[in-house]
């Protein structure tokens, strides 16, 4: 069974020792253990600390495991003066795409500074994996998936992967609408709703199986629980194969 994990993270310290995944070596070991051939990975230091420093750490990991750890360059919109230089540097270094986290950075996904990134992504046909979530938590207004409709429409050459596919039932429902409406919106399915495959079944039913990517959020969340949702979902084996491997593989091959 071939698996590409579209949503992994890397730590420098073992915050989740039971799941492993610390540093480049830990991430590679975690992948090997779970039969993952490639992953899209963003560094926690880049998300929660200085994004350039974290991106440096990711670059080292990419060099150590070329073709296996595909780095995502984290952009923190709170530092607008550093956005274009960081993007130029990281794209030249071979980063696969960009990771944004409007919730952690406390910045609306459609906020002004993010548009610098979106312009860049549109011009260079870059994809962005953004954390999305929608429920009663007011903090999630920053990463409300509904913000991405206008972005997808205005930046047609950019491709948006909605991480966690909205995270909760309310967000899932909005993501289904967006994926159906916009060609450049894709859904990545890792979430905290462990063991429950029903939303994945709904995604396949309502959006088809071409725009859904498998992700685990490992080591922050359990790889087994994420994979279990795909295996236990009442979908065809072909759909399973597409979600686990074929869709993201084609996505990465195309620009």
């Amino acid at each position: 069974m071939k698996i590409i994990d579209a949503h992994m993270h890397m730590y420098e310290h073992r915050e989740k020792p039971e799941f492993g995944g610390s540093g480049a070596k830990g991430a590679a070991e975690l992948m090997d253990k779970n039969g993952v051939s490639k992953c899209l990975n963003s560094h926690i230091t880049a998300l929660k600390g200085d994004f350039s420093k974290g991106n440096d750490l990711m670059h080292r990991a990419m060099k150590k495991y070329p073709g296996k750890i595909l780095g995502l360059c984290v952009i923190d919109p709170n530092f607008p003066g550093r956005i274009f230089p960081e993007l130029d540097k990281r794209m030249a270094q071979g980063f696969a795409g960009v990771k944004t986290h409007p919730y952690i950075h406390g910045y609306f996904a459609n906020g002004k500074n993010y548009h610098m990134l979106y312009e860049y992504a549109h011009k260079h046909r870059i994809f962005i994996l953004s954390h999305t979530y929608l429920n009663e938590d007011p903090g999630n207004r920053f990463c409300d998936p509904r913000l991405f409709g206008e972005l997808a429409r205005n930046y047609k050459n950019a491709r948006f992967i909605l991480g966690h596919a909205g995270g909760a039932p309310q967000g899932h429902a909005e993501c289904v609408k967006l994926a159906n409406k916009y060609d450049n919106i894709y859904l990545e399915m890792c979430s905290t709703r462990a063991f429950d495959p029903r939303w994945l079944e709904k995604f396949v039913d309502k959006t088809g199986d071409d725009k859904i990517f498998f992700g685990s959020d490992a080591p922050f969340n359990s790889f087994e629980a994420a994979l279990g949702k795909v295996l236990s979902a009442r979908i065809s084996d072909k759909s399973r194969e597409k979600i686990l491997y074929l869709n993201i593989s084609r996505f990465l091959d195309s620009k």
Binding site: A194, P197, G228
Partner: peptide
């Protein structure tokens, strides 16, 4: 019993 096999026929 445990994931990733939970709820599967395996």
């Amino acid at each position: 019993e445990e994931p990733p096999f939970f709820r599967t026929d395996s």
